[in-house]
Amino acid sequence: MPFARKRAVAVDRIIVVAFNAPFRLEDSGEGMKQGVDPDDLTRPFWEAANEHRLVIQNCAACDRLQHPPARSCHQCRFGDSLEWKEVSGRGRIYNYGVVHDCPIRLLQEDQPFNVAVIMLDDDPGIQMYSHLSGTPVDAVPVGADVEVVFEATANGQKVPEWRVVAQER
Protein backbone atom coordinates (compact mmCIF):
# COMPACT_ATOMS: atom_id res chain seq x y z
CA MET A 1 0.00 0.00 0.00
CA PRO A 2 2.50 2.64 -1.11
CA PHE A 3 0.14 5.56 -0.79
CA ALA A 4 -0.81 4.77 2.77
CA ARG A 5 2.86 4.51 3.71
CA LYS A 6 3.82 7.78 2.09
CA ARG A 7 0.91 9.58 3.62
CA ALA A 8 1.90 8.39 7.05
CA VAL A 9 5.39 9.79 6.53
CA ALA A 10 3.99 13.09 5.40
CA VAL A 11 1.76 13.43 8.44
CA ASP A 12 4.61 12.58 10.79
CA ARG A 13 6.67 15.28 9.19
CA ILE A 14 4.13 17.89 10.23
CA ILE A 15 5.56 17.83 13.73
CA VAL A 16 8.95 18.79 12.41
CA VAL A 17 7.49 21.50 10.26
CA ALA A 18 5.39 22.90 13.03
CA PHE A 19 7.90 23.16 15.80
CA ASN A 20 11.44 22.97 14.52
CA ALA A 21 12.13 24.62 11.23
CA PRO A 22 10.66 26.44 8.26
CA PHE A 23 9.29 24.05 5.67
CA ARG A 24 11.48 23.36 2.67
CA LEU A 25 10.09 21.85 -0.53
CA GLU A 26 12.98 19.40 -0.72
CA ASP A 27 11.80 17.93 2.58
CA SER A 28 8.46 17.06 1.14
CA GLY A 29 9.32 13.74 -0.50
CA GLU A 30 7.00 12.14 -3.00
CA GLY A 31 3.25 12.17 -3.09
CA MET A 32 2.57 15.39 -1.25
CA LYS A 33 -0.48 17.42 -2.07
CA GLN A 34 -0.03 20.52 -4.17
CA GLY A 35 0.82 23.64 -2.23
CA VAL A 36 -1.88 26.14 -1.39
CA ASP A 37 -1.79 29.89 -2.01
CA PRO A 38 -4.43 31.30 0.37
CA ASP A 39 -6.68 33.90 -1.23
CA ASP A 40 -8.89 36.53 0.35
CA LEU A 41 -11.94 34.31 0.54
CA THR A 42 -10.25 31.33 2.16
CA ARG A 43 -7.29 32.85 4.08
CA PRO A 44 -8.85 32.37 7.56
CA PHE A 45 -9.44 28.68 6.79
CA TRP A 46 -5.80 28.14 5.83
CA GLU A 47 -4.37 30.27 8.63
CA ALA A 48 -6.37 28.25 11.14
CA ALA A 49 -5.08 25.03 9.58
CA ASN A 50 -1.52 26.22 10.15
CA GLU A 51 -2.51 26.61 13.83
CA HIS A 52 -4.04 23.12 13.84
CA ARG A 53 -7.56 24.46 14.17
CA LEU A 54 -10.47 23.61 11.89
CA VAL A 55 -12.72 26.56 11.12
CA ILE A 56 -15.75 26.59 8.84
CA GLN A 57 -17.56 29.58 7.41
CA ASN A 58 -20.76 30.30 9.29
CA CYS A 59 -23.65 32.69 8.73
CA ALA A 60 -24.40 34.13 12.17
CA ALA A 61 -27.79 35.39 11.00
CA CYS A 62 -28.88 31.94 9.81
CA ASP A 63 -26.77 29.99 12.34
CA ARG A 64 -25.72 27.82 9.40
CA LEU A 65 -22.32 26.48 8.40
CA GLN A 66 -21.30 26.39 4.75
CA HIS A 67 -18.37 24.80 2.99
CA PRO A 68 -16.77 25.51 0.54
CA PRO A 69 -16.58 29.15 1.60
CA ALA A 70 -18.46 31.72 -0.45
CA ARG A 71 -18.92 35.48 -0.59
CA SER A 72 -22.49 35.23 0.66
CA CYS A 73 -24.67 32.87 2.63
CA HIS A 74 -26.36 30.33 0.35
CA GLN A 75 -29.49 30.55 2.48
CA CYS A 76 -30.09 34.26 3.16
CA ARG A 77 -27.94 35.47 0.23
CA PHE A 78 -26.25 38.14 2.38
CA GLY A 79 -22.58 38.29 3.24
CA ASP A 80 -22.69 40.65 6.19
CA SER A 81 -23.06 37.95 8.82
CA LEU A 82 -20.44 35.53 7.57
CA GLU A 83 -17.82 34.58 10.15
CA TRP A 84 -15.39 31.76 10.81
CA LYS A 85 -16.42 29.25 13.44
CA GLU A 86 -14.12 26.71 15.02
CA VAL A 87 -15.56 23.20 14.95
CA SER A 88 -14.74 20.06 16.86
CA GLY A 89 -12.64 18.30 14.27
CA ARG A 90 -14.64 15.11 14.62
CA GLY A 91 -16.67 13.47 11.91
CA ARG A 92 -17.81 10.32 10.19
CA ILE A 93 -17.02 8.66 6.86
CA TYR A 94 -20.00 9.03 4.50
CA ASN A 95 -18.56 6.87 1.73
CA TYR A 96 -15.52 6.86 -0.53
CA GLY A 97 -14.01 6.22 -3.93
CA VAL A 98 -10.63 4.86 -4.94
CA VAL A 99 -8.85 7.13 -7.40
CA HIS A 100 -6.97 5.30 -10.15
CA ASP A 101 -6.82 8.11 -12.71
CA CYS A 102 -5.94 11.33 -10.95
CA PRO A 103 -5.70 14.64 -12.81
CA ILE A 104 -3.19 16.13 -10.33
CA ARG A 105 0.36 15.44 -11.46
CA LEU A 106 1.89 15.45 -7.97
CA LEU A 107 -0.42 12.67 -6.81
CA GLN A 108 -0.32 10.42 -9.86
CA GLU A 109 2.54 8.19 -8.73
CA ASP A 110 0.57 7.31 -5.60
CA GLN A 111 -2.38 5.86 -7.49
CA PRO A 112 -4.57 4.13 -6.53
CA PHE A 113 -5.53 5.98 -3.36
CA ASN A 114 -8.59 6.49 -1.21
CA VAL A 115 -10.64 9.65 -1.17
CA ALA A 116 -13.30 9.59 1.51
CA VAL A 117 -16.12 12.05 2.02
CA ILE A 118 -16.18 13.13 5.67
CA MET A 119 -19.33 14.52 7.28
CA LEU A 120 -18.66 16.76 10.28
CA ASP A 121 -20.22 15.89 13.63
CA ASP A 122 -20.97 19.58 14.14
CA ASP A 123 -23.18 19.51 11.04
CA PRO A 124 -23.37 16.35 8.89
CA GLY A 125 -24.33 18.49 5.91
CA ILE A 126 -20.78 19.83 5.80
CA GLN A 127 -18.28 17.66 3.98
CA MET A 128 -14.53 17.51 3.63
CA TYR A 129 -12.40 15.19 1.54
CA SER A 130 -9.69 12.96 2.99
CA HIS A 131 -7.00 10.59 1.79
CA LEU A 132 -7.38 8.76 5.12
CA SER A 133 -3.74 8.35 5.91
CA GLY A 134 -2.96 4.86 7.19
CA THR A 135 -6.12 3.27 5.84
CA PRO A 136 -5.37 0.56 3.24
CA VAL A 137 -6.56 1.24 -0.29
CA ASP A 138 -10.19 0.23 -0.85
CA ALA A 139 -10.59 -0.85 2.78
CA VAL A 140 -12.27 2.31 4.05
CA PRO A 141 -14.62 1.68 6.96
CA VAL A 142 -17.77 3.50 5.85
CA GLY A 143 -19.54 5.04 8.84
CA ALA A 144 -16.41 5.05 11.01
CA ASP A 145 -15.53 7.94 13.31
CA VAL A 146 -12.66 10.14 12.23
CA GLU A 147 -10.76 13.07 13.67
CA VAL A 148 -8.90 15.86 11.99
CA VAL A 149 -5.14 15.99 11.63
CA PHE A 150 -3.14 18.61 9.81
CA GLU A 151 -0.81 17.72 6.97
CA ALA A 152 1.80 19.81 5.22
CA THR A 153 1.40 20.40 1.49
CA ALA A 154 4.14 21.01 -1.05
CA ASN A 155 4.67 24.64 -0.05
CA GLY A 156 4.34 24.09 3.70
CA GLN A 157 0.73 25.25 3.97
CA LYS A 158 -1.11 22.81 6.16
CA VAL A 159 -4.39 21.24 5.20
CA PRO A 160 -7.04 19.44 7.27
CA GLU A 161 -6.85 15.68 6.85
CA TRP A 162 -8.60 12.91 8.73
CA ARG A 163 -7.78 9.61 10.38
CA VAL A 164 -9.99 6.79 11.58
CA VAL A 165 -10.39 6.63 15.35
CA ALA A 166 -13.26 4.13 15.74
CA GLN A 167 -15.16 1.75 13.52
CA GLU A 168 -18.76 2.22 12.43
CA ARG A 169 -21.11 3.68 15.01
Binding site: Q34, P38, P68, C102, I104, H131, T153
Partner: peptide, 15 residues
Protein backbone atom coordinates in the same frame (compact mmCIF):
# COMPACT_ATOMS: atom_id res chain seq x y z
CA UNK B 1 3.15 22.97 -7.51
CA UNK B 2 0.52 25.17 -5.85
CA UNK B 3 -3.07 26.22 -6.44
CA UNK B 4 -5.27 29.05 -5.11
CA UNK B 5 -6.89 28.48 -1.76
CA UNK B 6 -10.44 28.55 -3.11
CA UNK B 7 -9.65 25.79 -5.59
CA UNK B 8 -7.68 23.80 -3.05
CA UNK B 9 -10.70 23.29 -0.79
CA UNK B 10 -12.03 20.85 -3.37
CA UNK B 11 -9.13 20.00 -5.70
CA UNK B 12 -6.22 19.03 -3.45
CA UNK B 13 -7.37 15.44 -3.16
CA UNK B 14 -7.00 14.70 -6.87
CA UNK B 15 -10.49 13.55 -7.63
Amino acid sequence: EAIPGSSAIRSLWGT
